Computed example of a mutant assay.
Amino acid sequence: MAFNQVTIIGVGLIGGSFALALRRAGFDGIITGWGGQRSLSIALDRGIIDSVEESFNSGEICRSDLIYLACPINSIISFIETYNKQLKPGALLTDAGSTKQKICESARLHLPRSIEFIGGHPMAGSEKTGAENASADLFDGAAYIITPDEFSHPEPVAQLEVLIKELGARPITVSALHHDRAVALVSHLPQLLSTALAAAILKRGEADRLLLLSGRGFQDMTRLAASDWSIWGDIISTNRENILESISQMIGSLEEVKAALEHCDYESLKLLFKTANQAEKQCRAVKTMLESSTED
Rank of each mutant, 00 (worst) to 15 (best):
Ala43Met: 01
Gly47Val: 08
Thr275His: 04
Ile73Ser: 04
Asp137Cys: 02
Ser78Arg: 15
Leu212Asp: 15
Ile76Asp: 00
Gly215Gln: 07
Thr238Lys: 06
Ala136Leu: 08
Glu256Phe: 13
Thr129Gly: 04
Ala199Gln: 09
Ser64Trp: 09
His153Cys: 04
Ser227Tyr: 08
Arg63Asn: 13
Ser194Trp: 11
Leu189Lys: 09
Phe218Ile: 10
Ala200Gly: 14
Thr173Glu: 05
Arg223Ala: 13
Arg170Gly: 09
Glu150Ile: 13
Gln5Glu: 01
Asp234Val: 08
Gly15Glu: 10
Leu202Glu: 03
Ile76Leu: 06
Ala285Gln: 13
Met289Glu: 09
Asp234His: 08
Glu206Met: 04
Gly215Leu: 14
Pro171Ile: 07
Leu92Gln: 05
Pro154Gly: 08
Met250Ser: 13
Val157Glu: 15
Leu269Arg: 11
Leu185Met: 12
Leu44Gly: 12
Leu254Ser: 00
Ala196Asp: 04
Ala226Gly: 11
Lys102Ala: 15
Ser114Arg: 02
Asp296Gln: 15
Leu244Pro: 02
Gln278Pro: 07
Leu87Gln: 07
Ala43Trp: 06
Asn74Val: 12
Ser41Gln: 11
Ser51Phe: 11
Ala134Cys: 14
Val162Leu: 13
Ile9Pro: 06
Leu272Glu: 15
Ser58Pro: 04
Val11Pro: 07
Thr222Phe: 07
Tyr68Gly: 01
Asn74Leu: 14
Ile80Thr: 01
Leu189Glu: 02
Ile235Tyr: 09
Glu267Cys: 05
Ala96Lys: 03
Asp140Pro: 00
Gly90Met: 05
Gly141Leu: 04
Asn74Ile: 09
Ser237Lys: 13
Gln278Ile: 04
Leu254Val: 02
Lys270Asp: 12
Ala226Cys: 03
Leu177Lys: 12
Gly205Tyr: 15
Arg38Met: 15
Phe218Asn: 01
Ile115Phe: 00
Glu241Tyr: 13
Ser268Arg: 10
Arg284Cys: 07
Thr238Ala: 05
Thr238Glu: 03
Glu105Leu: 12
Leu224Val: 02
Arg23Tyr: 09
Val11Tyr: 07
Ala2Glu: 06
Asn4Cys: 10
Thr195Ile: 05
Asp137Thr: 12
Leu269His: 11
Gln249Pro: 05
Leu163Pro: 14
Tyr266Met: 06
Glu132Cys: 03
Phe117Glu: 05
Leu213Ser: 11
Ala207Ile: 11
Thr147Cys: 05
Lys274Cys: 01
Ala260Met: 00
His179Ile: 03
Leu193Met: 11
Pro72Gln: 04
Asp234Ile: 14
